[in-house]
Write a protein that binds this DNA or RNA. Structure first.
Lengths: 394, 394
DNA sequence: CTGTGTTTCTTCGGGACCCGAAGAAACGCA
DNA sequence: TGCGTTTCTTCGGGTCCCGAAGAAACACAG
């Protein structure tokens, strides 16, 4: 219930309340006006007024009489929900081993999902172009109206400056330094676009629909080819100066470790990423190539594979422990390809956190694996897109 | 310009705007209505109305005609400022080698300052009691009205649960586990009281009046007997779950270091605190007892002393580097007794940060020494007290 | 000294907003 | 069928912010 700092006055208050109602509806799904009044604290009168206004503009619909079983006395309410509007938003995950796409309407309903292989490591432009193709194609395939697309959010493996949308650094997309992918995507597709760090988006996704629902302070750690973190602090995504927060992969984990691509020595990524885990594993299983291979071996009870996962978890937990000491979050959510073997990973991270934090801190921090799997980033992108569009609120 | 989430409606909007005006006045000191209107975005009409209301209730006063030189055409404005109200707040620093006290009125003017030795390490109740005595005495000495005291904020070296005000843990105040000092202080003095972590308060102080003015993301690191951090993220104090954020002193800095009081090994505190620095120094200068001794030696160009400070700075910088990777703040402000030798400390911390972070991150982070010296905590406490009281705003 | 332009601040009226009270509607239950 | 209960709308009142217009105070030019 905060008023945008530029606006002021009565109409701003109205917008603010409108946003509150929409937020409440997104959380609840389907509620009566009376419940809405109770959950927002606004009077029934105001809710009625807002609802009829929003209903007239097509943002919400009145579905049916409330059938919440029987036994409840009193007149049943009429249920309200966000209308399956024509307006669309899209989320794209450009950071994984395949390009993922999800299209949703403003009510949060996913209308379409698609993906395409992304065996184009380092070729950023190629990936971006393929993503645009995929988006175009999917819109046609699912018979959606192209003119209704309002906003696209793209997640990439790299740091994106929050201010000007430029890529500050990306290990994966070579030559993207100072490049503005959002601008390029806008020109290519004509869609308003925003680019964010993939781990940041995944954090948003997990908080909205995954393991971090309702949590105020949470750290999401993605362990895939690289390692990155997304921070939700005081209920909001924390990006840091120039969006550079969460670069946990380059915390030094071993004084005398290998040289990392970043120029330092012993970065966490050189020890605990999926790539380095597979490299270790190949000493015993020369055929192990993918995260899937590793997970299969773990599932079959292979000791070496389990050890590799545990080692990665211990190293990550060691780094996270420092983070826990400093931030004291409520929960750590683990994601990325390494979570194909969730149990040993979570156990290892937990024990490491307990070992390296003060007891009163470590014992209060939950550790959990993603519940959205490889979709946390796309879904987070969709979430952010929906939010951005409906906070302009007409 | 955010509305408190419990209230709603027109009066909430009014309160919100009132708070905006008060905040603007606190920042600006003395401005005309017209300037106020421009800086807040509220219309001149509204400003006029708010000003006359606040003026009637005695919160602000109209001082004089605007004498901002000449050469300016047009009717001069009438200057407004926060009235040197009778209402008082107090800040107390219980974490240092002496107990410090500052009393201010709601306009932010410091009315009285005092301090008393605190050579009572570990005796928490004794310290708290002495602080109450000091407060009582100072009120009398400066001829202040005891009944006008509205709020007291106390900083202690320990973690305070934000919710219930209880001490979660304090290395310094033995037996304070689960104790609620604010309650005790209220009963002893009859003043509404709040207890916070000292580094958190110091961070607020530096941000309001010190090296971090106007900064949105800042990390304050206090290096004294212990080491602690205070985090200001997105412009607001970040406390973490149960207020446990900022426990940087117990990040493991050396795998095979000494056992720390917290039960782990090689904590930063065992390496870089003033106590451990002095211990190292005594190998060469057996007489060195206090931070002052160390600083004097550094000033006289003593190599061993400079080395000790540099070593501490390097270790702290090493730990901060991980924090920079994760949070990407704008500035690191160093405080505590170790900053009696600011230059070698800042240099060491800087070089360590540059060494252990990725270049695009480390090179953008400023490192600075406190500009408030040993007063950052008290002044931060006063700041928080003033804020808390005037946001209730009558 | 007198106009003119400029800036500041107040007054007045209009419009927007939220809320409480009262009433109509829909349901369960006796 | 009547009563209690809950939901939702309507109506009137009060509060709030804003734009326009006007009064006031000053610099400056003639």
């Amino acid at each position: 219930m905060s008023i945008g700092s530029q606006q002021t006055g009565l109409t701003a208050l109205r917008s603010s309340n409108r946003a509150v109602v929409i937020q409440a509806l997104r959380r609840a799904g389907e509620v009566s006006r009376a419940e809405l009044s109770r959950s927002t604290g606004l009077s029934g009168t105001t809710i009625s007024s807002l609802v009829s206004e929003l209903s007239a503009s097509g943002v919400i619909t009145e579905t049916a009489r409330d059938d919440r079983g029987s036994g409840r006395t009193g007149r049943p309410g009429r249920l309200i929900r966000l209308a399956p509007t024509n307006e669309l938003v899209a989320g794209i995950d450009l950071a994984g081993s395949e390009i993922q796409l999800a299209i949703a309407d403003l009510s949060g309903r996913i209308c379409a999902q698609a993906s395409t292989p992304a065996d184009i490591d380092g070729a950023g432009m190629e990936a971006l172009s393929r993503a645009a193709d995929l988006l175009d194609r999917t819109i046609v395939d699912f018979d959606l109206d192209r003119t209704q697309m309002r906003y696209v959010v793209i997640g990439i493996a790299g740091i994106v400056d929050t201010m000007d949308g430029r890529v500050v650094v990306s290990d994966r997309m070579h030559g993207w330094q100072d490049f503005n992918p959002a601008e390029w995507f806008l020109e290519r597709t004509s869609f308003a676009t925003r680019v964010e760090n993939d781990a940041d988006l995944a954090a948003l996704g997990e908080r909205a629909r995954g393991a971090g629902r309702g949590v105020m302070d949470m750290v999401f750690v993605k362990i895939s080819a690289g390692i990155g973190a997304g921070l939700v602090l005081s209920g909001q995504l924390y990006r840091g100066r120039h969006g550079a927060a969460g670069e946990i992969g380059h915390v030094q984990a071993r004084e005398d470790g290998e040289i990392c691509s970043c120029g330092n020595r012993g970065c966490l990524e050189t020890i605990a990423s999926v790539n380095s885990a597979l490299q270790s594993l190949r000493a015993v299983h020369p055929g192990a190539r993918t995260a899937r291979d590793l997970a299969d071996l773990v599932e079959s009870g292979d000791r070496a594979a389990m050890r590799v996962v545990a080692d990665a978890g211990l190293a990550v937990g060691r780094a996270i422990a420092d983070l826990c000491n400093t931030l004291a979050p409520e929960i750590i959510v683990l994601g990325g390809e390494m979570t194909m073997s969730p149990t040993p990973l979570v156990d290892a991270v937990s024990s490491s956190i307990l070992r390296y934090t003060r007891p009163h801190i470590g014992s209060r921090i939950k550790v959990a694996a993603t519940t959205l799997g490889t979709q946390s980033c796309v879904l987070g992108a969709v979430e952010l897109a929906t939010d951005s569009v409906s906070s302009f609120a007409d």
